[in-house]
Simulated assay, not measured.
Amino acid sequence: MYTLKLTQVGNSVGAVFPKELLARLDLQKGDELYVTESPDGVRITKTNPEFEEQMRAAKAVMKKRRAVLRELAK
């Protein structure tokens, strides 16, 4: 478990991530994090959950309509 410390950054508040956690999550300065609500509270992820859902839907369509897409690509 990691503990994040909140600190003042100008007129905002920022969280300080330990170096080990940044390495484990493959995060670097300037990366974006996405916060979504979950049944347990909030969830913080590196990937955009809305985009991930759109990609899952697109993959399902591409798999189902593979022959049509091949014809269109000609």
Score class of each variant (00 low, 15 high):
6 L>W: 14
4 L>E: 06
25 L>A: 05
37 E>M: 08
20 E>Q: 11
50 E>V: 13
48 N>M: 09
32 E>L: 12
61 V>D: 03
10 G>S: 12
35 V>Y: 01
15 A>L: 14
29 K>W: 08
22 L>S: 08
13 V>F: 15
11 N>K: 15
52 E>G: 01
12 S>V: 12
13 V>K: 15
59 K>M: 09
63 K>M: 03
72 L>H: 09
68 V>L: 10
57 A>H: 09
1 M>K: 13
63 K>Y: 04
9 V>H: 14
24 R>W: 10
16 V>N: 04
36 T>W: 06
37 E>D: 07
21 L>F: 14
5 K>T: 11
25 L>P: 00
34 Y>K: 01
70 R>D: 08
63 K>H: 06
2 Y>M: 05
27 L>H: 12
61 V>M: 08
35 V>G: 00
49 P>Q: 04
39 P>E: 05
50 E>D: 09
21 L>T: 04
5 K>L: 09
74 K>G: 03
25 L>M: 11
43 R>C: 04
7 T>F: 13
55 M>E: 14
72 L>Y: 10
68 V>S: 02
67 A>Q: 08
51 F>H: 10
70 R>F: 07
5 K>H: 05
33 L>F: 07
17 F>V: 02
16 V>L: 12
2 Y>C: 02
58 A>E: 13
20 E>C: 02
27 L>P: 02
54 Q>T: 11
31 D>T: 06
35 V>H: 01
9 V>W: 15
69 L>F: 11
41 G>P: 03
60 A>N: 07
35 V>N: 00
31 D>Y: 07
4 L>F: 14
7 T>R: 12
71 E>N: 09
24 R>H: 10
56 R>F: 06
39 P>H: 07
21 L>C: 05
59 K>R: 13
28 Q>C: 02
59 K>S: 02
73 A>P: 03
70 R>S: 03
45 T>G: 05
67 A>C: 02
9 V>Y: 15
38 S>M: 06
1 M>W: 13
8 Q>K: 14
31 D>P: 03
44 I>Q: 05
51 F>Y: 14
36 T>C: 01
4 L>A: 06
38 S>Y: 07
39 P>W: 10
61 V>F: 13
43 R>W: 03
62 M>Q: 11
17 F>T: 01
44 I>G: 01
12 S>R: 15
30 G>R: 12
29 K>A: 02
26 D>P: 01
34 Y>I: 02
3 T>E: 08
17 F>I: 04
44 I>S: 02
36 T>E: 11
20 E>P: 00
66 R>M: 03
65 R>F: 09
67 A>F: 05
51 F>P: 00
62 M>Y: 10
53 E>A: 09
60 A>L: 12
33 L>H: 07
38 S>G: 06
30 G>E: 11
39 P>I: 14
14 G>R: 14
40 D>M: 12
3 T>P: 01
49 P>Y: 06
32 E>K: 15
